[in-house]
Amino acid sequence: MRILVIGMGGREHAIVWKIVQSPLVEQVYCVPGNPGISDIGECACVSLEDGFSHIADFAENHQVNLTIVGPETPLANGLVNVFQTRGLRVFGPTQQASVIEASKDFAKNLMVENSIPTADYRTFVDADAAISYVKALNQPVFVKADGLAAGKGAIPGRTVEEAITAINRILVHGDFGTSGKKVIIEELMIGEEASFTVLTDGDYCLPLATAQDHKMSHDGDQGENTGGMGAYSPAPVITKSIEKEVMETIVYPTIRSMKAEGREFKGVLYVGLMITQTGPKVVEFNARFGDPETQVLLPRLISDLVPLLNACVDGNLNLRTVEWKPETAVCTIMASG
């Protein structure tokens, strides 16, 4: 097989690293890739503009058998739809399904309508109304930009003053651009966070190993929210009984409700969880492999990744199983600033 990976980060490096080990694979391309990836695969500079026509041309011209989309933005902008229209095999959800990550308001509505456990919330487009709400609530909250923000759009409001500052950043000052046209104000859940990842073909869901990432920029869970400063796998907080509960009360209800809405979800569903005293609740959904969680999941994966991804595309994931190394994996992010 000839495989194309879209993306340029550590997540895509981990995906390429795992894929090149498959006996099914003869060539791996990565667009745009990075210097580390170029050591194990072929990187190419191909535009993702112009409705993804150039990258689709690249896949056709290089006889790519499967394209794997790493980042959320191409998914939200419809890359999978373009590839499917041109008859190209691609792993990842369509634009219609990717909205589960691209709009937090959509995701929260979906959860409420389908009794999927999550934090209480309100959505606002007017800053004054949002500020009045947090003043009346007078308790710690999370203030979240509705759209994609590279993992930085969720701002803790530990005090009313912090929450007001976050509201102004998003709705008044436009720190997150069009992603901040709406703001979600969510109760601050108490518990331990964990990352729960499943592969799905739209019907069957196969859970992967658990992980926990650490998002705050400074030690002791202090500082700004980031895309992730590090991760480890497995996450001991997710026991077998909690995994069963997550699959039954969160994962399958989500996949079924998306299909019922005409938004069949195929690919990776990442569930950011808070393990509370009353059980697991959803913090967020992502429509792709987590970063940096992928960097600790794939080194533990014994099974060949490629047949698993093919099964998601072909609709026969129920025929696959997955095997993991018992050792723990840890990833630390090096970042400036």
Rank of each mutant, 00 (worst) to 15 (best):
G9Q: 06
G10Q: 12
R11F: 13
E12H: 08
I15T: 15
I15G: 04
V20F: 02
L24H: 08
L24K: 04
E26W: 07
Q27F: 02
V31D: 01
G33F: 04
N34G: 01
G36D: 12
D39N: 12
I40R: 03
G41D: 00
S47H: 13
E49G: 13
F52V: 14
H54I: 06
N61Y: 10
V64N: 01
N65T: 04
T67N: 04
I68C: 14
E72G: 02
P74W: 00
A76T: 01
N77S: 04
G78A: 01
T85E: 15
R86D: 05
R86N: 00
L88Q: 07
F91C: 01
T94D: 10
T94Y: 02
A97G: 09
V99I: 15
A102S: 15
K104C: 12
D105N: 06
D105P: 11
A107G: 10
L110K: 10
V112S: 13
N114F: 14
S115M: 09
S115D: 15
T123E: 15
D126F: 11
D128K: 15
K135V: 03
N138S: 10
Q139P: 01
P140H: 10
V141L: 05
V141S: 03
V141F: 00
V141R: 05
G147T: 07
L148E: 06
G151D: 09
G151V: 05
A154H: 07
I155M: 15
P156R: 09
R158C: 11
E162G: 07
E162L: 08
A163I: 13
A163T: 13
N168A: 13
N168R: 15
V172Y: 13
G174M: 10
D175Q: 14
G177Y: 03
G177Q: 10
S179V: 06
G180H: 13
K181R: 15
I184L: 14
E186T: 09
S195R: 09
L199G: 10
T200V: 12
L206I: 05
L206W: 08
L208K: 01
L208Q: 04
A209K: 05
H214C: 00
H214L: 05
H214S: 06
M216H: 07
D219Y: 01
D221Q: 02
Q222L: 08
E224G: 03
G227Y: 05
G227C: 04
G228N: 10
M229G: 12
S233G: 06
P236M: 07
P236S: 09
I238L: 08
K240Q: 09
S241F: 01
I242T: 08
M247L: 15
M247H: 09
Y252N: 11
Y252W: 14
P253V: 08
I255D: 15
R256K: 12
M258A: 02
K259I: 02
V268A: 09
G272H: 12
M274F: 07
I275N: 04
T278H: 07
G279R: 02
P280A: 05
V282D: 03
V283Q: 01
N286E: 13
R288I: 11
R288T: 12
F289K: 09
D291C: 05
P292E: 15
P292T: 12
P292L: 10
L297A: 03
L298S: 08
P299F: 14
L301W: 14
L305R: 12
L309D: 01
A311Q: 03
V313K: 06
L317P: 02
L319S: 11
T321K: 09
T321H: 08
V322M: 02
E323H: 11
W324V: 01
E327F: 14
E327P: 04
E327M: 09
T328H: 07
C331T: 14
M334L: 14
